[in-house]
Computed example of a mutant assay.
Amino acid sequence: MKAENQVLIAALLSKTEKSISEALYLKTLSSEQLNFKNHAQEWNALQCLEHLNLYGDFYLPKIEAQILKQKPGKGKLSFKGGMLGNYFANMIQVKGNKVKKYKAMKHMTAESGLLVTLTIERFLKQQELLKVLLKQCLNIDLNKPKVETALSRFIKLNMGDTLRFMVYHTERHMLQALNMVN
């Protein structure tokens, strides 16, 4: 994928705003609705959000630290996705309200049992921070800073790919959460 920073960031901000709006909708539902499961093996809406919170806990500080190390770029900045970054982004991206299922890493899986609506508040705070970080990325080279992945500290993606992964991953699990309550 190739895109100007402004185009990429605008698209990611739009998807983040949508996720915030969807989370605000979830906040209006009862605890019973948010903890409902059709089957014991699937996640309820709050488990979807808690899974995203665990990813936010991992990635947001790393993204912020890399942004702080960068100097503002000059002129029109462009992003070019890396081979691995494109693979991960395409793998998890929602395509026509459909997602391909993947097994979550154990350390990024929300515990079963009742979760409280504070999970939604935590998610909303993380999404607001993500919006701030996305805006800060408008004027940096998204190809240079490398962010380690949850898979391994040895596997790193460039900033643009990391941001795409975060936003697409959120979009994916928000769709899953909404499907559980509708």
Score class of each variant (00 low, 15 high):
Met83Asn: 12
Gly85Lys: 07
Thr119Ala: 00
Ser78Glu: 14
Leu114Thr: 09
Leu60Asn: 02
Lys69Arg: 12
Val132Asp: 06
Leu60Ala: 01
Pro61Gly: 02
Ser78Leu: 11
Glu64Ala: 13
Lys103His: 07
Met91Thr: 15
Ser112Pro: 10
Gln66Pro: 02
Leu130Arg: 09
Asn90Glu: 11
Ile67Gly: 01
Lys101Thr: 09
Lys131Thr: 05
Leu68Trp: 13
Gly73Ile: 13
Lys101His: 10
His107Gly: 03
Ser78Lys: 11
Ala104Met: 06
Asn90Ile: 05
Gln127Gly: 03
Thr119Ser: 04
Phe123Glu: 00
Leu134Ser: 01
Gly82Ala: 04
Asn86Val: 07
Met83Lys: 12
His107Gln: 12
Glu64Leu: 04
Val94Cys: 06
Lys69Trp: 03
Thr117Val: 08
Thr119Phe: 06
Glu121Trp: 08
Met108Ala: 03
Lys69Leu: 13
Asn90Phe: 07
Gly113Ile: 00
Gly113Arg: 07
Lys100Tyr: 08
Ala65Ile: 00
Lys80Ile: 12
Lys103Asp: 09
Leu114Tyr: 10
Gln126Asp: 04
Lys98Asn: 13
Gln127Arg: 15
Gly56Lys: 08
Lys76Thr: 13
Tyr87Met: 09
Glu128Trp: 12
Met83Ser: 10
Met83Thr: 10
Gln126Cys: 02
Gly75Gln: 13
Ser112Thr: 13
Leu130Ser: 04
Ala110His: 03
Ile67Thr: 02
Ile92Ser: 04
Glu121Arg: 07
Ala104Arg: 11
Ala104Asp: 00
Lys69Gln: 10
Lys135Val: 09
Leu133Asn: 11
Leu118Ala: 12
Leu133Met: 15
Lys95Trp: 08
Gly85Phe: 10
His107Trp: 12
Phe79Val: 09
Ser112Asn: 11
Ala110Tyr: 07
Glu111Tyr: 10
Leu134Ile: 06
Lys80Arg: 13
Lys106Leu: 05
Gly85Ala: 03
Ser78Gln: 15
Leu68Phe: 11
Leu84His: 03
Lys103Tyr: 13
Lys71Arg: 13
Asp57Ala: 01
Lys62Tyr: 01
Lys101Pro: 11
Gln136Lys: 15
Gly85Trp: 05
Leu134Phe: 11
Leu77Gln: 13
Thr119His: 09
Lys76Gly: 03
Gly81His: 10
Ala110Pro: 02
Gly56Arg: 08
Ile67Lys: 03
Val99Lys: 14
Ala104His: 02
Asp57Thr: 06
Phe88His: 01
Leu68Val: 07
Lys62Cys: 00
Leu84Gln: 06
Met91Ile: 05
Lys103Ala: 12
Gln70Ala: 14
Gln70Arg: 11
Lys71Gln: 10
Ser112Tyr: 11
Lys106Asp: 04
Val99His: 06
Asn90Thr: 04
Tyr87Ser: 08
Lys98Val: 09
Lys62Thr: 01
Phe88Pro: 01
Arg122Ile: 14
Glu128Cys: 08
Arg122His: 08
Phe58His: 04
Lys95Ile: 10
Ile63Glu: 01
Leu114Val: 14
Leu133Gln: 15
Met83Arg: 08
Gln136Pro: 01
Tyr87Trp: 14
Gln66Asn: 06
Ser78His: 15
Phe123Gly: 00
Val94Ile: 15
Gln126Tyr: 03
Gln136His: 14
Lys131Tyr: 10
Leu60Glu: 00
Lys131Glu: 06
Gln126Phe: 04
Lys100Met: 10
Gln70Cys: 15
Gln136Val: 05
Phe88Trp: 11
Lys69Glu: 06
Leu118Ile: 03
Tyr102Gln: 09
Leu134Asp: 01
Leu68Met: 11
Gln126His: 08
Met91Glu: 06
Lys71Asp: 05
